Amino acid sequence: MEFRWQHTGEPVSMKRFLTKHGISMRLIKAIKHGEGEFRLDGIPQFGEITVENGDYAGIWLPAEGADPEVAVSSVPITVLYEDDHWLVVNKPAGLTSVPGPTNREDTLVNRVKGYLMAQQAENQKPHLITRLDRDTSGLVLVAKHRVAQSMTTWEPVAKTLRKTYLAWVDGQLTPAQGTITAAIGRVGTSPRREVTPAGQDATTKYWVEQTFATATQVKLELVTGRTHQIRVHLSHLGHPLLGDQLYAGPTTLIQRQALHAATLQFHDPFTDQDLQWQAPLPEDLEQLINQLK
């Protein structure tokens, strides 16, 4: 893979030129250590490199082979979008995002790896940009190569990455919209997080979409991205997610947390276009709404 851009202006160092175009210092260091090449007008360069006005400068990286440490799962995935750089997947509830101590064989990463291998993709190592809890359904953005992964941390792109969630909470949430600002941290060894002054700053915006007799449908947007953030913040308000056993949510109508990553949008640095997607509600959440009505 080669990525290059034309420089206009005063001479600059290759490092400065690349960071200006969204290549992370981590990736630049990897190339310096032999994992790729710096190029000027398609010719490999070494040592101190200066990019002159009119030069086409960039990087070349070998294709990423499949990680032998990651198992392959042939279970199908639901792909909502795919191009040379990105994969957008609709993750079902009950599926862990990444391999861990209790599951290394069939997570979203294992399934995406199986999908890429079956497609004989040039790069077969998926990079999850967004992650969801095991029992949260909805959109997950996957970078198909290291440069795309690097671009998502680049400020002009990172600022445009926006995710909204739909949640169904116990009781009638008021006011109709608001911002929850409360630090979140771990207390003891439990997987449960809590609002605690010693935790990390966390901010969640919400908008009430529909009120039922015993529950409320809410749209939410994360300003920060802490573990279990939505679940902790809503529980802290006294309105835990329906089905969320870890945070004392009622389980009469649904057996998993009623949380869905509904929309995703960002500015694609490769095409200079705004991309956006919406994930349909899974059957269990449709049934939940019908029961609440």
Rank of each mutant, 00 (worst) to 15 (best):
E122C: 12
L141H: 03
G34L: 08
R193V: 02
H236T: 11
I23L: 04
L264F: 12
L264C: 08
K91P: 06
V98A: 09
K163D: 07
Q278L: 02
H233F: 07
L61F: 01
E155L: 10
P44G: 03
K91A: 04
L128Y: 02
T8R: 12
D274T: 10
G9D: 07
V195A: 11
H228I: 02
L141S: 03
K29P: 01
S73R: 11
D272M: 06
G225F: 15
T211N: 00
P92T: 10
I43C: 09
T252W: 02
E37G: 00
F3W: 15
H233Y: 06
T189N: 14
V147F: 06
R16L: 03
L264N: 08
G178S: 06
L259G: 07
F270I: 10
E221H: 10
V12N: 00
E105T: 09
D201I: 03
R131N: 02
G225I: 13
P280V: 05
H236P: 10
I254A: 05
V51L: 06
L27V: 11
H85Q: 13
A71F: 13
L40V: 10
P191Y: 12
K29G: 05
R256Y: 03
E48F: 07
A118L: 09
Y115S: 01
Q172Y: 01
Q245E: 14
L241S: 10
T153D: 13
E286K: 13
Q120P: 00
L139V: 05
R193N: 15
G54Q: 08
L259T: 08
Q278H: 12
L166R: 14
L234A: 04
Y115V: 01
T214Q: 15
M25W: 05
P240M: 09
T227H: 07
F270A: 07
I43R: 09
S73Q: 07
Q276E: 14
Q278T: 15
P191E: 14
E2V: 12
L141M: 06
F38I: 07
T211L: 01
L80G: 12
F270N: 05
